[in-house]
Computed example of a mutant assay.
Amino acid sequence: MAGRTARIEHLVTSGTFDLDGGSWEVDNNVWIVGDDSEAVVIDAAHDAEAIAAALGQRRLLAIVCSHAHNDHVDAAPALAARTGAPILLHPDDLPLWKQTHPDRAPDGTLTDGQRIEVAGTALTVLHTPGHSPGAVCLYGEELGTLFSGDTLFHGGPGATGRSYSHFPTIIDSIRDRLLTLPPQTVVRTGHGDSTTIGAEAPSLGEWIARGH
């Protein structure tokens, strides 16, 4: 794998987030990590055709779900059907997954500490429950990047006001799993702007105090 250079590509797709009887218009960040020959997709949101177009002729190794809220997984089966790539999800989020895809199970599981290899680099799965039970972040140490899903945003933790979410749990996840990363780590989020661990750490101290 020597000499290969993984890069990060970013796509924004639009659709709805549906939960607990409500529906909200949202823009989602879709992240592609790879090189000219292979890639992984983090969160196949809303538009399988747009994601497939961004991939081009590259081999898709996996469709990784940061969590199973519908806006992060609604295009995953269609993208899998087009590419043959497996859909990977932490099993604790299967109840949420089944709300969107009752007749199509994920192809594989994500576990804490699992390494996903692509284009000469590795993404390490960090189980970070709170926004949902099976929420995960992906840490690319060599890329200096954390893909945070909806666990951590520019400005604070992900939302915990709806079913399957729990505020003290997300605070524990951020404190124990994310604030321990190097402060210069770029945080590429599920919605909105990127940030860094160091930029978020001061305000997160206040959120942690509120959480306990």
Rank of each mutant, 00 (worst) to 15 (best):
M1V: 13
A2W: 08
H10W: 13
L11T: 09
S14A: 15
D18I: 15
D18H: 14
G21N: 12
E25C: 00
D27F: 00
D27V: 02
N29S: 13
V30Q: 05
G34F: 12
D35E: 12
D35P: 04
D36Q: 14
V40S: 05
V41T: 06
V41L: 05
D43T: 08
D43G: 00
D43N: 15
A44M: 01
H46V: 04
A48S: 13
E49K: 10
E49T: 11
E49R: 12
I51A: 02
A52R: 15
A52M: 02
Q57E: 14
R58I: 08
L60E: 03
A62Y: 09
A62T: 09
H67M: 07
A68L: 08
P77F: 11
A80W: 03
L88E: 00
P91C: 05
D93N: 06
D93W: 01
L96I: 14
W97V: 05
K98F: 09
Q99Y: 07
T100A: 03
A105M: 14
L110Q: 10
L110Y: 06
T111A: 13
T111W: 01
D112K: 07
D112E: 12
R115V: 09
R115C: 07
A122Y: 02
A122N: 11
T124H: 03
V125S: 02
H131E: 02
L138T: 10
G140T: 12
G140Q: 11
E141N: 04
D150G: 04
G158F: 08
T160G: 04
Y164Q: 10
S165P: 09
I170F: 07
D172K: 13
D172V: 09
R175N: 10
D176R: 12
L178F: 03
T180H: 02
H191E: 14
T195C: 12
E200R: 04
A201F: 12
